[in-house]
Amino acid sequence: CSVCSEPIMPEPGRDETVRVVALDKNFHMKCYKCEDCGKPLSIEADDNGCFPLDGHVLCRKCHTARA
C-alpha cells in the first residue's frame, strides 16, 4: 500500500482482497484518503472520489484549494 507500506493481502479466512489503484499507486480501501485533509475517498466517479493533482490523491475541496 502506498500509504501504510503494508502488503495488500486477503483478511484471515478470505481468499480475495480489494485494492484501489489510482495514479499507478496501490491502496487498501481504508488507506484511500485525501493526502491533505484525510477524508476517505470513494472509488466511484463522483464528488467524493479522487481529484488528482500533480501526482497527489486529493478530495475535491483540497484539489480546488491547491489549484
Rank of each mutant, 00 (worst) to 15 (best):
R66K: 05
R66V: 09
C59K: 00
N48T: 13
G49V: 07
H63Y: 07
L53K: 09
A65K: 13
E35T: 09
T17W: 08
V57Q: 07
D47M: 08
H63V: 05
C50E: 04
C4D: 00
C4H: 00
R14Q: 05
K61H: 15
S2F: 15
A65E: 14
E11H: 01
A45P: 13
C4K: 00
V20F: 04
M9I: 07
D47G: 13
H56P: 02
G13C: 03
H28W: 00
V18I: 09
M29R: 15
L58F: 12
N48D: 06
D24H: 10
I8E: 04
P7A: 13
F27P: 02
C34Q: 01
V57E: 03
L41C: 02
C34A: 02
A67G: 04
D24L: 03
G38Q: 12
C34P: 04
P7N: 12
C31H: 03
A45L: 07
A65N: 11
S2V: 06
V20L: 15
D47F: 05
T64V: 15
C34Y: 01
D47P: 10
V18G: 15
A65T: 13
S2G: 13
P12E: 15
R60A: 15
K25L: 06
C1F: 02
C59A: 00
N48W: 04
S2W: 05
D47E: 11
Y32I: 00
C34L: 01
E35V: 05
E44L: 04
V57H: 03
R66A: 15
S2M: 02
P52L: 13
E16N: 09
D46G: 12
V21T: 14
L53P: 04
S5M: 06
A67D: 15
K61N: 09
G13M: 09
G49D: 06
P10R: 15
C37D: 00
C50F: 06
L23Q: 14
F51P: 06
K33R: 08
R19C: 07
C31Q: 00
C59F: 00
C31E: 01
L23V: 14
S5W: 05
L58C: 05
A67I: 15
L41V: 03
H56W: 03
R14H: 11
C34V: 00
M9G: 14
E16M: 04
V20M: 10
H28K: 01
H56Y: 06
V57F: 06
S42H: 06
R14N: 13
P40L: 11
C37Y: 01
C4Y: 01
E6T: 07
H56K: 14
A45K: 15
A65P: 08
G13R: 06
D36I: 14
D15E: 12
G49A: 11
G49Y: 05
C1G: 02
C31L: 00
D47I: 12
I43Y: 08
E11Q: 08
A65Q: 14
T64C: 14
L41F: 09
D24R: 06
P7W: 03
D15L: 08
K61M: 12
I8H: 12
P12I: 07
K30H: 12
K39R: 09
P52Y: 07
G38I: 09
E6W: 04
P40A: 13
D36S: 10
R19S: 11
D15R: 09
R14Y: 10
K30Q: 12
K61G: 09
R60T: 05
K33V: 08
G55T: 08
C50T: 06
P7S: 14
R60W: 04
L58E: 02
A65W: 07
P52V: 14
R14C: 13
P10M: 15
H28N: 03
E16V: 02
P7T: 12
D36K: 03
F27S: 02
D15C: 08
H56G: 04
E11N: 14
L41K: 04
A22I: 11
K30C: 07
V18K: 15
E35P: 01
V21M: 11
A65F: 15
D54A: 08
C59E: 01
C59I: 00
G38N: 15
P12M: 10
I8L: 11
C37A: 01
F51G: 08
C4A: 00
D24F: 03
H63E: 07
G38T: 09
D46E: 03
V20G: 03
K25H: 02
D24A: 08
E6M: 07
K30G: 11
H28Y: 01
R60L: 07
V18T: 15
E11I: 11
C4R: 00
E6P: 00
C31V: 00
H63A: 05
K33S: 06
C34N: 04
G13A: 06
P52T: 13
V3G: 03
N26F: 04
I43S: 14
R14W: 04
